[in-house]
Design a protein around this nucleic acid. Structure first.
Lengths: 331, 331
DNA sequence: GACATCTCAGGGAGCGCTCCCGCAAACTCT
DNA sequence: AGAGTTTGCGGGAGCGCTCCCTGAGATGTC
């Protein structure tokens, strides 16, 4: 038993396919009585348009790919960024009547699939999330001619609009705050350097310190809790006299807190800690974490809106959202 | 300028559309030399099949909806379950060549959209995540006749296979552990009671306590950190002499730790705390959290595999995955 | 060698929809 | 009142693919 088609509805309502199509698509040029007739037939038959047939002729799919770089190695992690960004973007897209196709660009294989998928015009547009600089996917997608937007400034120079938060300004606020608090040996745990957010935050840290004639103390993490712990241990070994640490995200700050606790350092008395992002967990650490609030959900929503605008033919310029320091008890 | 079609490839290769179709779909009944000829034309033209045209005739879409209940009220939260489950399921589906369409079933409007979307056969199958008992969506989806699976046993009686973890066994282990540690007044912070996981965990808590002749001390949360803090404050007020608390998930346990800290109770000396799930954050609390390890990612992957099996026509039975207590320093 | 069987390529219908075109009826205007 | 314009509906081509059917040539059988 097959689902009812436009033709079936037309026959039942005693009108033509064209009229049913017009009614279903909400065109105003249909007489009210005919419209009612058609709607009754639609409801009686439980008619739902076939999206494949529709998009075959319209060349639209009304769906948007959200492509997230996802490390294929290791376990799935509970990255709060993923949840916040994907949800916020999804809400925005769904409100605009667009379907969200989620793709994880972890392996080379997955990236190839994503490329093919977009090339096949399975989606009308693509939103890229947390791409690494070395990733060839963004450039490959630009070549398909599909509208694109990046959540976060792309690390490599690819021509596409993006939305980011003020990484430089936010970091500068954090470091100045530590300096004003009398901290003299301020270390940082930075993120993976092939990502623009990590680069920008590290750059701003260095910039502010060099302005005041202080030297940088850097350990490299990868934005995970575990890497924060490791990096902190490394820092304590490198410079046991450090009195503050700026972690490039909260997850690493949480990891650093653990390392400090195990090393017997008191926070903030011995070492001040400041994170970045202000995820919900930052409120629940002991002591509660000072951090730079980045509007992650807003950034994702703004990226989504930018892309929707692009789809309507509006121009798109990069957007930088403001950040602000939230001082709690860890600094 | 339009994308190349099957016809274009056929003309270029000097064969028929049918042959190109066979080659593209990997059918073995094509002579090797013809196959090479076709593949060369495909590559030269950059041909990618049009998925809409294909699914119009095959009545398959090769995509699967993952529908997650998402509270429309309030901010987007950084629920680690969302990240873990969605990623694990996506990986499984993508490995099987299926696209994942993510839908958030927050508002009634979104639920209606999801229903229509599935009714339109925009997807071949549906995976439901963390549905509430009162939600009419699961039953509505069953009515569409699309293959379904639920991540977590559905709270209401709807006929669909599901994968869950051993909520009862896991909770029982946790409570017995607290009893064996000499705890006498064991409270619980349970989840929203319209969810089966919350029901099962609360039921097992009550069961074990009543076996030993002890009374229940219950506060209700909603699986968020904030609700854990509130519930813990309530519990301390109701029974200041309590010496242990079992939180129905780690997020609420983390919230409870905060309330205990603010109330000046030492963990585990004054109050032992045990959570549920063993999310990564449980390792980073102070003290590290004892918890019941539920294989969340595995559960999601198993749900996905069950659904893929269903799609291949295999039968599907509910699955319950084992859990195990992980004792750390909070108990 | 005659006939049946098998293999593999091509022809073409048809999936369900949109949208252009044409036509008839209803207006408007001088 | 007649010609021109507008409005609303139906007819039908065509989107790009799959898959059934047909038939030519290769292979097998006695």
């Amino acid at each position: 038993m097959r689902r009812p088609t436009l033709d079936a509805v037309a026959t039942r309502a005693g009108v033509s396919k064209s009229t049913v199509s017009r009614v279903v698509n909400g065109e105003p040029t249909v007489a009210a009585d005919l419209r009612d007739l058609v709607m009754r037939a639609v409801n009686e038959l439980g008619y739902v348009p076939n999206p494949a047939a529709r998009s075959l002729v319209t060349r639209r799919t009304d769906s948007i790919a959200v492509i997230v770089s996802d490390p294929s190695t290791g376990l799935v992690s509970d990255d709060p960024m993923f949840s916040t960004v994907v949800r916020a973007a999804s809400r925005e897209f769904e409100a605009a009547g667009k379907q969200v196709v989620l793709m994880l660009a972890g392996s080379d294989d997955a990236r190839l699939r994503a490329r093919q998928f977009v090339a096949a015009r399975h989606v009308d547009a693509v939103m890229l999330v947390s791409m690494h600089g070395a990733d060839p996917l963004p450039a490959a997608l630009v070549a398909t001619g599909v509208p694109l937007v990046s959540h976060g400034r792309p690390a490599s120079r690819v021509p596409m609009p993006w939305v980011d938060n003020d990484n430089v300004g936010g970091t500068a606020q954090a470091i100045r705050h530590l300096l004003e608090g009398g901290r003299r040996r301020i270390a940082t745990i930075c993120g993976p350097l092939d990502m623009s957010a990590a680069q920008d935050r590290l750059g701003a840290y260095r910039e502010v310190l060099s302005e005041t004639g202080r030297r940088s103390i850097v350990a490299i993490g990868d934005f995970t809790r575990a890497s924060g712990t490791e990096a902190m241990e490394q820092l304590l070994e490198d410079d046991p006299a450090l009195d503050a640490v700026f972690a490039a995200n909260d997850l690493m700050a949480i990891g650093a807190l653990r390392a400090l606790r195990r090393a017997g350092r008191r926070v903030p008395d011995d070492v001040a800690v400041v994170g970045y992002d202000d995820i919900e967990a930052a409120l629940y650490t002991d002591p509660p974490l000072s951090t730079v609030r980045s509007p992650m959900g807003e950034q994702a929503a703004a990226s989504a809106r930018l892309l929707l605008g692009l789809l309507r033919g509006e121009p798109a310029e990069p957007v930088v959202l403001p950040t602000r320091l939230v001082v709690r008890e860890s600094s």
